[in-house]
């Protein structure tokens, strides 16, 4: 029953998207990334849609994580990294001089490969973002935001009785869902996930994947993953990266069943990876 509804929703949105094309969230044009002398991303063009889970797949070192980190300028923290080209969020260039990366990252949240809760209480972990961005006017407000974020992170029921205990005391899967809750607490528009399940066991992975599926109703989700099964399970759009090039980008079903590029086909069928 639920599945059927989901399928219907998917279909409806797909149709919607193909009809209007106005809900493109991020556009990247001619993006080049250099780390010192090495050319990590070569001439990349992609449109990332709203309310969609977009998966970046490809062998290790293909540049998919690098590109993900370009989308909220996390690469700024690496001194040797240089980004050229144009990346627009809602038609505003995020590498424009006027843009403060701090504000950008409030709009484009990120979840990392390894769960990285701060050494603080569960509550303070989630409240951290809203506090620094001044999203709450009162303590009650903040409580509200925290609860809502934890509910969206699908972890509220597990932690509601111990909000003051340290976030590092949770299990791996719980920690990752806490980090997701922490990311959504700042009300981002885009959520970037860098291999969010690679450090988790299968049960925790299933929980997080289910959560990702729910998150797409409110956010544009971009997920980097090593696992093709995972990409097939959670994403609607898939981009295949190889050696710093975006080889193929399209509907997930089409990429997995009918890849146009021979390199994609090799990767999908397990010949390169």
């Amino acid at each position: 029953m639920v599945n059927k509804v989901n399928n219907m929703l998917d279909d409806a949105r797909l149709k919607d998207r193909t009809m209007t094309g106005t809900d493109i969230k991020i556009t990247a044009r001619n993006v080049q990334v250099h780390y010192g002398t090495s050319h990590a991303i070569k001439d990349l063009n992609v449109d990332i849609l709203n309310n969609t889970v977009t998966a970046f797949i490809g062998p290790s070192g293909c540049g998919k994580s690098t590109f993900l980190r370009c989308l909220n300028r996390m690469n700024d923290t690496i001194a040797s990294c240089r980004v050229d080209g144009e990346i627009k969020l809602d038609s505003e260039d995020i590498y424009d001089k006027k843009v403060d990366p701090v504000q950008l990252r409030a709009k484009v949240g990120m979840v990392f490969q390894k769960p990285n809760p701060f050494p603080k209480s569960i509550y303070d972990n989630v409240a951290y973002g809203p506090r620094i961005h001044g999203l709450a006017r009162s303590k009650a407000d903040l409580d509200d935001i925290v609860e809502k974020a934890l509910r969206r992170g699908a972890i509220w029921d597990e932690v509601k009785d111990r909000l003051q205990s340290p976030g590092t005391g949770l299990s791996g899967g719980q920690q990752q869902r806490l980090c997701i809750a922490r990311a959504v607490a700042t009300e981002p528009e885009v959520l970037l996930m860098d291999e969010p399940c690679s450090a988790l066991d299968p049960i925790a992975t299933a929980q997080v994947e289910e959560l990702i599926d729910e998150l797409k109703q409110n956010y544009s989700v971009v997920i980097v993953t090593h696992s093709m099964q995972q990409a097939a399970r959670v994403s609607q759009k898939t981009a295949f990266f190889h050696l710093g090039n975006l080889v193929e980008y399209g509907e997930t079903g089409q990429i997995f069943t009918n890849p146009k590029d021979p390199r994609t086909e090799s990767y999908i069928s397990g010949r390169i990876g």
């Binding site: 505003e92 424009d96 006027k98 999203l135 935001i145 009300e187």
Partner: peptide, 11 residues
């Protein structure tokens, strides 16, 4: 309403 950021330009 709590926690909802008013949409504004990055610029």
């Amino acid at each position: 309403p709590a926690g909802v950021r008013k949409p504004h330009s990055l610029y």
